[in-house]
Amino acid sequence: MNAYAKFRDLHRTGAPLVLPNAWDHASAAALVTAGFRAVGTTSLGVASAAGKSDAEGDTRAETVALALSLARLDALVSVDVEGGFSEDPDEVAALARELVESGVVGVNIEDGRPDGGLADPEHQCAVIRAVKRAAPDLFVNARTDTHWLSGNEERTTARVTAYQEAGADGVFVPGLRDEETIAALVDTLDVPLNILHSPGGPSLRTLADLGVRRVSCGSLLFRAALQATVATALAVAEDLPVRDGLPTYAEADALARAFVQG
């Protein structure tokens, strides 16, 4: 079974893929060390680490550089490419080919736009078709931001159905937490439904029972790391105990060489 097939096989009914999202080599290597077989990237983490805003289409170079780095790991890597960093389907397809050549097995492509609107669905389908023509084996996770913007169930269903018909291997609806709506989407789709983990939303067990086959962490881990960084600095400044169990210097340094494929 090749890497693409292995990644698809992880999207299982009753036992969804839990996909943690990294923002640099060290965070990804730490997740692989912890036992995660597949790792995604978070566009917020990548953009923030570069001093840029998320979802502005301004981090193509940083995203590709991270993909090249993560491809060295013994892991199945899926990359968040925002909207593809171009409105030209052929340019997005060229990016997909570049990522495949680096060893990436999946991408996440969204229809949300920097102005807060949504891409025309026909245009987004053209992008998906172009990517699949250029990289047939690549797992295309087509994200729609309809639920974040309006919560309109009919519009969400129409878009994910269209993206599936255009060739998407999975669909992603961040912000969706209503169990009845999730179950209805699962029944509508033939491809895996991806749900964003929400601390106040359905549990992993509930999502599995509903038929969700992928649960992403999104920017959660990056934001948790920021919180832990500040909390640790404040503990030092206030002469309070620092949390036990931190990686040693040697362990952190070793992440640069961890799981490098020969």
Score class of each variant (00 low, 15 high):
89 P>D: 01
54 D>T: 04
86 S>V: 05
125 C>L: 02
74 D>W: 12
51 G>E: 04
75 A>I: 02
153 E>W: 06
126 A>L: 07
118 L>M: 13
151 G>I: 03
121 P>M: 00
73 L>F: 10
49 A>S: 15
168 A>R: 12
126 A>N: 13
148 W>T: 15
140 V>E: 02
165 E>Y: 06
87 E>N: 06
68 L>R: 15
158 A>Q: 14
164 Q>L: 02
66 L>F: 01
63 T>G: 09
103 G>D: 05
126 A>R: 12
121 P>S: 06
131 V>S: 00
178 D>W: 08
100 V>M: 06
79 V>C: 07
96 A>L: 10
125 C>Y: 02
170 G>Y: 09
45 G>K: 09
177 R>W: 02
178 D>Q: 10
174 P>D: 07
68 L>E: 15
60 R>G: 00
138 L>C: 06
101 E>Y: 05
97 R>A: 13
109 I>Y: 08
71 A>G: 14
44 L>H: 08
131 V>H: 10
145 D>R: 14
132 K>V: 04
176 L>R: 00
56 E>D: 01
77 V>E: 05
139 F>K: 07
99 L>K: 13
118 L>P: 01
133 R>D: 14
64 V>R: 08
107 V>S: 03
121 P>L: 03
66 L>P: 02
179 E>K: 12
134 A>N: 05
115 D>V: 00
80 D>C: 06
90 D>E: 13
177 R>F: 00
107 V>Y: 03
64 V>G: 09
44 L>T: 04
49 A>C: 08
81 V>G: 08
164 Q>F: 01
160 V>E: 01
80 D>G: 04
101 E>M: 14
51 G>Q: 08
139 F>Q: 11
115 D>A: 01
60 R>D: 02
137 D>Y: 01
136 P>C: 03
81 V>A: 11
172 F>G: 02
72 R>H: 15
119 A>M: 06
147 H>S: 14
106 G>F: 01
53 S>L: 07
44 L>F: 11
66 L>C: 06
49 A>Q: 12
111 D>W: 06
147 H>G: 11
137 D>P: 03
58 D>R: 07
56 E>A: 10
122 E>C: 08
167 G>P: 08
149 L>C: 14
146 T>G: 14
154 E>D: 15
117 G>T: 10
71 A>T: 08
174 P>C: 04
60 R>L: 14
178 D>E: 11
144 T>E: 10
163 Y>R: 04
69 S>T: 04
151 G>Y: 13
157 T>G: 00
156 T>N: 07
162 A>S: 09
179 E>Q: 11
145 D>H: 15
138 L>K: 09
58 D>S: 10
87 E>L: 12
104 V>D: 04
175 G>Q: 01
84 G>S: 11
171 V>N: 07
89 P>R: 07
70 L>C: 11
95 L>W: 13
97 R>Q: 15
73 L>N: 03
54 D>H: 05
63 T>N: 03
78 S>C: 10
159 R>H: 04
50 A>L: 05
79 V>M: 14
152 N>W: 09
109 I>G: 04
99 L>F: 13
134 A>K: 02
127 V>I: 04
133 R>S: 13
93 A>L: 05
